[in-house]
Design a protein around this nucleic acid. Structure first.
Lengths: 355, 355
DNA sequence: CTGAAAGCGCTAACAT
DNA sequence: ATGTTAGCGCTTTCAG
């Protein structure tokens, strides 16, 4: 809007004493231009209610003074900050990093900013953020925090929405999709695909590593379909990060009767598992096949390269951002947008092999 | 400050028609409590100028109404948003992700938020952010964008500082450390250490991959010290990520006379190089040693685990955040804080080996 | 087309 | 101890 204000000049009208900088305001410009403050505001906002010549004159002066509108003041009256909150467990996690990046990219193209809200899997942190959102610091928010412990906040988040702070969930299920749209990938199916593929390779005894009901269920359903049963000792229902995967790998390596293949909650865990297995001289994939979910960039650069199930994070992020901004601008959502689900895709690489 | 306001109740005083939610304001509370707006403000800010009983009464009412102060209004009058901007090239980069995380963690502990400003290495994006900062959306900013093309903004950033938006640089050098404090790691020395170590292993022909004057110079100085000379064909001076590293690896693999070892700008590039080498049947480290810089988490989980030079990113992030918040709160910096340099440390793992 | 004026919701003197 | 008042810098009717 103020493209031509971005000049590199710098004039300071109202500096009183050195070191006490005061930003130039509409008033400064008004005085200098000999018009009223209101006219300046209109002119700079390109209203056609103001004479072309005065507009030009005003803009020129604004340029010269290197005027930048005060975002705080504008936010107060417009009741909008042009920023959204993004709640994720952590940035140090390729999946969420990519999600964050795609969301930021999209909203930025629409002149919005994003406040980074990582919770480190702490539910109290999520609570703090919810309250911050209520204070009007953001125009809307995306919640992408997994974990069952977060579910307790769903009611609070609904209140947020009722207070006119739109929310969209990513890979988290809410209750009422009219109130809170959901963008997700079919992780149930992803886990199913992973297990199904492993079984098709000839593996009979499969393990699962990670904490996610939905994925575990998908995993189970594949076993069931093939008439295989799941032993308790084969599910390592715990852990979310790479180190945790390493622990699982160590445990598996220490077993006499090892599973033939393991499906991991995500690629990071898979890498952890593989790393431990290799360290313990268990060959991957010759002795044990390992498969991840997510298809992070590193999966393709790992050694052995990781067989995994692709989840289109960037697309999901963009879609979620689109939906959120639509909501913020008051547009209505199509039924599909209220529950948008992305398909997943098996990516075969080198960490899985015929038994 | 309003701990006890976080109740889950929800009362709406001034809803006029359904769906038209209006937040409760100080005025609502004042009316309800039969006191003035000012008293309410003081009470909720825990001023001791207000009677204990009225304070309690006011707080109780605020609770009941589920009051949350309006951050936008407060920002306008306090001339502070309690948020800072963090400019990095991209979140999808383990180094910057960790930096972002540590900065966020620290400022959050001081009740600040961070706006994620990634530039994707685009200098125009940095410009947009600078201008956004000028609008008062943030109380300060951290710039951690590398790249020589960004240097052109240094003047603009200095103006920002002169307009009372404190800035600190991370791994980027400015001009005037009084104006813009710098927190950095000794990457010159890091590259030196890497090369020096490789030479100590017996390698004589070393290559360098990546685009960074400082690191290349450190690399060169190690060669010089040992009386080795650097052939042009051994420096792959280019802007690179993991894929770029892969390309370099392919080029190296295709050479008749291969270098014996390669120092990479960072771990991601190193991983790319190794991956290509392995794909081309060149053994790492048996035939070529590869060493990275940064010591990202993945370095330890890679295969072969990556020899690298540790850079204490998290500490750097925290320190930068500390310094920035000090500046924001008007505290003066010690000379050391104006140019804070972190030492680096060689981390020997499996990607390097005696020739 | 331009100006005057009323806020947005809060803080912070200054009175009382 | 509490109330009154004047802004913060901007947008937006409503008059002229």
């Amino acid at each position: 809007m103020y493209e031509n204000l971005l000049l590199y000049k710098y004039v300071n009208l109202n500096v009183l004493k050195e070191g006490d900088y005061m930003a130039v305001t509409l008033n400064d410009i008004a005085r200098k231009a000999g018009v009223s403050l209101a006219t300046v505001s209109l002119a700079l906002n390109n209203s056609d209610k103001v004479n072309k010549d005065t507009k030009l004159k005003i803009k020129r002066i604004a340029d010269k003074l290197n005027y930048v509108p005060n975002a705080r003041a504008r936010a107060l009256v417009k009741k909008s900050t042009k920023t959204i909150g993004l709640v994720i467990p952590e940035v140090v996690n390729p999946f969420f990093a990519e999600l964050a990046q795609s969301i930021k990219d999209y909203v930025r193209s629409q002149d919005f900013n994003v406040i980074l809200c990582s919770t480190d899997y702490q539910s109290e942190e999520e609570l703090r953020y919810i309250n911050m959102f209520r204070s009007g610091q953001v125009d809307g928010a995306i919640f992408a925090c997994v974990g069952d412990m977060m579910a307790q906040h769903n009611e609070l988040i609904i209140k947020l929405v009722e207070e006119n702070i739109p929310v969209v969930y990513v890979d988290r299920d809410g209750v009422d999709h009219d109130l809170i749209p959901v963008v997700k990938s079919d992780v149930y199916h992803a886990a199913y695909q992973a297990a199904d593929y492993l079984i098709s390779l000839g593996h009979k005894e499969l393990a699962f590593a990670g904490q996610s009901v939905e994925r575990l269920n998908g995993f189970k359903s594949a076993l069931m379909k093939h008439g295989l049963d799941l032993k308790d000792k084969n599910v390592y229902y715990d852990y979310l990060k790479m180190e945790g995967g390493y622990t699982v790998g160590e445990k598996i390596a220490a077993r006499k009767n090892k599973p033939e293949a393991v499906v991991c909650l995500n690629d990071e865990i898979a890498i952890g598992v593989i790393q431990a297995l290799i360290a313990e001289k268990v060959k991957v994939p010759e002795e044990i096949s390992v498969i991840g979910i997510d298809n992070i960039k590193m999966a393709n650069f790992y050694n052995p390269s990781l067989t995994t199930v692709n989840i289109p994070v960037s697309q999901m992020g963009k879609k979620a951002a689109e939906i959120l901004l639509k909501r913020i601008s008051g547009q209505t959502l199509s039924p599909k947008e209220k529950f948008f689900i992305f398909p997943t895709e098996l990516v075969i690489r080198d960490s899985s092999w015929k038994a």
